[in-house]
């Protein structure tokens, strides 16, 4: 690998070593500072706007003082719907890849597909959803178009996390189950999946966070309007979410208090993210406590 002698120990080398180690520490602390600055700025801007009224009022279209009640509802509703749609598929594909696909060409091919879908930009998924659901199926900008397209974003993550959690199930546990005469399906359903459940749940919470923050997909499939009714569970109405609202009010410019609304919405999203993150860490600790 090396053609010249680089490993000379000299005073220069020691100085360089000190300098570079210092640089690495600075870099790492720099990223922490970036995060703190970021979260701090968003929360500081949004704090004056945040109150119960902001969360529970309907939005205004032309006047100041609107709230984000339907957007908050749509965000949660779409996350739940899209998770419900993608969970069976993701679980099934994850089970197949870890338990049935073997270790050969089939597994490599499926993994390639999952990786490709995971790496596909959300704007591309948005275009696909727009052509298929909004135009071809004629569902226009609606909750169902949004939920189905958002599911495409979740599927690769759930599949991957299911596969990895199942691969981490200890072999002797499965063999004990086979030894007791269980079939492969019984072993998966009653031994492997319960063991992997916490890991899969952690993945689900992370997926929910990603879906909650997604905007590009929903601008083109769920639209930038909300239903006048509340709560509106119909899947044919447009369903603007928090993240879409945040983007729309800043780019549209008809609201006099767009700045404040955007700041408040961003703060709500950051708070939701922090809560989800705590939940993930709690689940993670539960996993580690059990495996110890």
């Amino acid at each position: 690998m090396q053609t010249r002698p680089v490993l000379r120990s000299s005073t220069t080398a020691k100085v360089v070593d000190r300098l570079m180690l210092g640089l690495l520490w600075t870099l790492a602390l720099g990223f922490i500072a970036v995060l703190l600055l970021f979260v701090g700025a968003i929360l500081k801007q949004g704090w004056p706007v945040l109150n119960l009224g902001f969360l529970t009022r309907m939005p205004e279209t032309l006047e100041a003082g609107g709230g984000i009640k339907p957007q908050l509802f749509n965000s949660i509703y779409l996350v739940v719907l899209s998770l419900g749609l993608s969970l069976p598929v993701g679980l099934g594909a994850g089970i197949y890849m870890s338990e049935y696909a073997g270790r050969g060409r089939a597994l490599r091919f499926f993994r390639l597909c999952i990786e490709t879908l995971a790496a596909t930009p959300s704007i591309v998924l948005a275009l696909f959803g727009m052509i298929l659901f909004v135009q071809t199926m004629g569902w226009s900008f609606s909750i169902r178009s949004g939920a189905l397209t958002l599911a495409l974003l979740n599927i690769p993550v759930i599949t991957r996390v299911t596969e990895l959690s199942l691969l981490a199930v200890p072999r002797d546990l499965k063999e004990a189950s086979y030894g007791l005469g269980a079939t492969k399906l019984q072993t998966i359903l009653k031994v492997s999946l319960p063991y992997a459940a916490t890991g899969i749940l952690t993945g689900l919470v992370l997926t929910a966070g990603r879906a909650f923050g997604e905007s590009a997909i929903l601008v083109f499939t769920a639209g930038t309007n909300v239903s006048a009714q509340f709560p509106d569970f119909r899947w044919t109405v447009p369903g603007e979410t928090l993240s879409v609202h945040l983007w729309y009010v800043t780019s549209d410019g008809t609201l006099p208090d767009a700045r404040e609304i955007a700041a408040g919405t961003a703060a709500v999203m950051i708070l939701a993210l922090l809560i989800l993150n705590l939940l993930v860490r709690f689940l993670d600790r539960a996993i580690r406590r059990r495996t110890r």
Partner: peptide, 18 residues
């Protein structure tokens, strides 16, 4: 690790508004 987890979880519109 936690810092990176949070950075990756922040929605792109929130980066945009920042």
């Amino acid at each position: 690790r936690q810092v990176m987890d949070l950075l990756v979880g922040i929605p792109s519109v929130v980066y945009g508004i920042f």
